Amino acid sequence: MTTVLIVDDQPLQRLGFRMLLENNPDTSVVGQAAHGAEALRLAAELRPDVVLMDIRMPGMDGIEATRRIVASGGRTKVLVLTTFDLDAYAYGALRAGAGGFLLKDALPEELLAGIRAVAAGDAVVAPALTRRLLDTFMEHVPDPEGAEPGARRDHRLRDRPGPRRPTPTRV
């Protein structure tokens, strides 16, 4: 059973997440918080497996709360869940140590799978964001063939040499 702390400043959002999670036999909601400072206190007190963290909240936002929860060194993982598909939020959350970043328009099954993945120590990123993250990352990776980082090259399989076949030997 995965224990979850729900953090969102919108009471209706918290209620919806709680209903979904309580109707799933693999998750248990151990608490709810309306802002980052309350999330820190409850995470330390309840030690949930996963904190389901909103980003935009009054007072301490979800990125700073994530940073502090992760820095505390406990076993609790953070899955950020937000309405805003902004690269700055995603990068900030991941830099703060979040194990995942999903959008609130995710299907219930996607959210549950994300919670399971983050609880297991894996990472999950919203599909809409994955391509942008990869593009940004690839701009900084050197090409194994010596091209400058960021240089575009077609890396499809047809451009790569296939396995070498042995040359037939005549006897």
Score class of each variant (00 low, 15 high):
L52A: 06
L79N: 01
P11Q: 06
L46A: 08
A93K: 02
A37K: 13
M57D: 05
R156I: 04
R153D: 12
M57S: 08
T167K: 09
E139P: 10
L15M: 10
V78D: 03
D135K: 12
H35W: 08
R153W: 12
M60V: 13
R165P: 08
A123V: 12
E45D: 15
R160K: 14
H155Q: 12
Y91G: 05
E109Q: 10
M57L: 10
D85W: 04
L5C: 07
A65T: 10
T3H: 01
L52T: 05
A147S: 13
M1V: 10
Y91N: 04
V124W: 00
L42Y: 09
K77S: 09
H155M: 09
G100N: 00
H140L: 14
E22T: 02
A117M: 03
A33Q: 03
A65H: 06
A93F: 01
Y89N: 01
R153I: 13
P161H: 05
L5A: 07
T169S: 14
H155W: 12
M53C: 07
D87G: 11
E64S: 08
V124F: 01
A43Y: 01
R41D: 12
P149M: 06
Q32S: 13
R67N: 07
A113H: 10
E145Q: 14
P142K: 14
M1C: 08
L15W: 13
M1D: 04
H140M: 14
P127M: 11
A71G: 06
G114S: 04
R132W: 11
L20T: 03
P48G: 07
D143C: 11
R170Y: 11
D87N: 12
L15N: 04
P161A: 07
I63H: 02
S28E: 11
A39D: 03
K104A: 06
R95M: 11
E148P: 08
G59R: 12
A88L: 13
T76Y: 05
E45W: 09
D143T: 07
T83A: 15
L134I: 13
D9Y: 00
E64M: 06
T76S: 11
M1W: 07
G99D: 04
D105R: 09
L5I: 06
L112V: 08
A123C: 09
F137A: 15
V80G: 01
N23A: 03
A113W: 05
L40A: 04
V70K: 07
V125A: 00
G16D: 11
L20H: 06
A90Q: 00
